[in-house]
């Protein structure tokens, strides 16, 4: 089956961010296709490379980056949500006059249309949020 995943909550505060990852990994391990993982609301905070969680805990962002590399996953952060919350790639940082970017490897920033497309193209859109 072809799935799309919507992640609506930020890392560490909400288990939804972990469950989204676990679902995505399990689906891939079972041979399903993940069309896209879309991060919205505080979910965009899953895509910052500047987070430094304690070493004896999971690193949620690094986990996504590794999974994306292994399976050529499309990890998309909503641009409007990312701008509000200070998540930027090099282009966004430049466009908004910021002195740094912080997007993690394997993620990209794009528009909400990518969420709608994810719903249209997949057999199921699965939401992880509160």
């Amino acid at each position: 089956m072809k799935f799309s995943v919507l992640v609506s909550e930020g890392p560490y505060t909400h288990e939804a961010a972990d469950t989204a990852y676990n679902f995505t990994k399990a689906a891939l391990d079972k041979g399903h296709e993940i069309f896209r993982v879309f991060f919205y609301h505080d979910g965009v905070n899953n895509g910052t490379r500047l987070a430094s969680p304690p070493q004896d805990d999971r690193n949620i962002t690094a986990r996504w980056t590794a999974l994306a590399k292994e399976h050529d996953l499309d990890l998309v952060l909503c641009v409007a949500a990312a701008q509000r919350r200070g998540i930027a790639d090099a282009d966004e940082a430049k466009r908004n006059g910021k002195d740094a970017d912080n997007i993690a490897e394997g993620f990209r920033i794009s528009g909400l249309g990518q969420l709608i497309e994810a719903g249209i193209e997949a057999d199921r859109l699965v939401t992880f949020g509160d």
Partner: peptide, 19 residues
Amino acid sequence: TIYALESLEVVLIGAAFEQ
């Protein structure tokens, strides 16, 4: 919370997809 506002933003963008 921001959910209501960001929901409306999805609806407005999504409207362009003729669903």
